[in-house]
């Protein structure tokens, strides 16, 4: 319990640190936010007016404290470009990005855990060698290329699924929405699986070498039964640590992939905002995504503690 509180404290500190870094880096913008927004040919009066409107004439520390106060109240600021509240912009996009990355994550876990275990158990067999080789190759393949190839073959040539876009009606037409997410989900999942299979395989190989598995066999457990009883839980400890990174991967994979499939999600919003230097939106999105990653890492740590009692005891002893 104490350890969990400590971990949550550490999480809060890194969240604050990350927000400081993001805030400061974006304030280094040459010219400044006001200049970047209004562009060339604006008068000094207009600039000054916008600056006081944005609060950028205040010292950075004051700006940060003000901004943090707003964030805590759920106010993420207003987009320079669309003049809409950033919070609203983000909320609109969530119904695309969240299902996309979560399903990709689940699909990747469902594919790579069995594949990795099989590849480890049959490490010298044709299946094991093939899985290792394919995942070695897969790690080198850029995610967007996978998307492009799937579009080329399954959407443009075979015409099984839409090549991109999202129905204007959104989730009101569930079938169409799902159809437009199939290829993006598969793309991100393939990309993630290549990494995860390697992890699961290595973790399982480590477990297969352990004496306790031999003990279980000596007591009459079959190979798979012994692996199920002792191996999976033990292999889960390292694999869980990669799950945090992988969920982040699926989220950021979604960011890239939305641009391949022209899906109007968070990734498209982020890219548009970076291109148009829409500071409040970039700031909110970068911080939001970083926060998800940091929170996932904290959850992973706590999850590992739940699986491995040794980690809990180590905390007490320390």
């Amino acid at each position: 319990m104490r350890a969990a509180l400590l971990r949550i404290g550490a999480l809060l500190i890194s969240l604050v640190l990350a927000s400081v870094v993001v805030f400061v880096v974006l304030r280094l913008l040459p010219g400044d936010a006001a200049g970047a927004t209004l562009g060339v040919g604006t008068t000094t009066d207009q600039l000054d007016q916008l600056r006081s409107e944005l609060g950028t004439d205040q010292p950075v520390v004051t700006q940060y404290v003000q901004w943090l106060g707003q964030v805590v109240r759920g106010d993420l600021g207003t987009s320079f470009v669309s003049r809409l509240p950033v919070a609203d912009l983000i909320t609109q996009k969530l119904p695309i990005t969240v299902p996309l990355s979560l399903s990709a994550f689940v699909l990747a876990v469902l594919v790579s855990v069995p594949l990795g275990v099989i590849a480890a158990v049959h490490r010298r067999g044709p299946v094991g060698v093939a899985v290792s080789a394919v995942s070695q190759l897969g790690v080198a393949v850029p995610v967007f290329w996978v998307g492009v190839l799937l579009v080329l073959v399954l959407a443009l040539q075979a015409r099984w699924l839409p090549a991109g876009g999202f129905p204007r009606t959104g989730w009101d037409d569930p079938a169409a929405a799902v159809r437009s997410l199939v290829l993006p989900v598969v793309t991100v999942a393939i990309a993630m699986s290549a990494v995860m299979v390697r992890y699961v395989r290595s973790a399982t190989l480590d477990v297969l070498d352990q004496d306790y598995l031999r003990t279980a066999r000596s007591l009459g457990y079959g190979r798979w039964h012994a692996l199920a009883r002792h191996g999976l839980r033990n292999a889960a400890v390292p694999v869980v640590s990669i799950l945090g990174i992988e969920l982040a991967t699926s989220l950021l994979g979604a960011v890239v992939i939305e641009n391949v499939f022209a899906l109007p999600g968070l990734g498209t919003l982020l890219l548009d905002s970076v291109t148009s230097r829409d500071l409040p939106v970039v700031q909110a999105l970068v911080l939001g995504l970083t926060a998800v990653v940091l929170i996932m890492n904290a959850l992973v740590d706590l999850g590992q503690r739940a699986i491995d009692p040794r980690l809990r005891t180590a905390e007490v002893a320390a």
Binding site: V25, P30, L252, V282, L289, L294
Partner: peptide, 16 residues
């Protein structure tokens, strides 16, 4: 390490 490369790149591109 926890900060994704893509996000760092987007921050830097926004600035530079």
């Amino acid at each position: 390490i926890a900060f994704p490369t893509l996000l760092l790149a987007m921050l830097i591109v926004t600035v530079r």
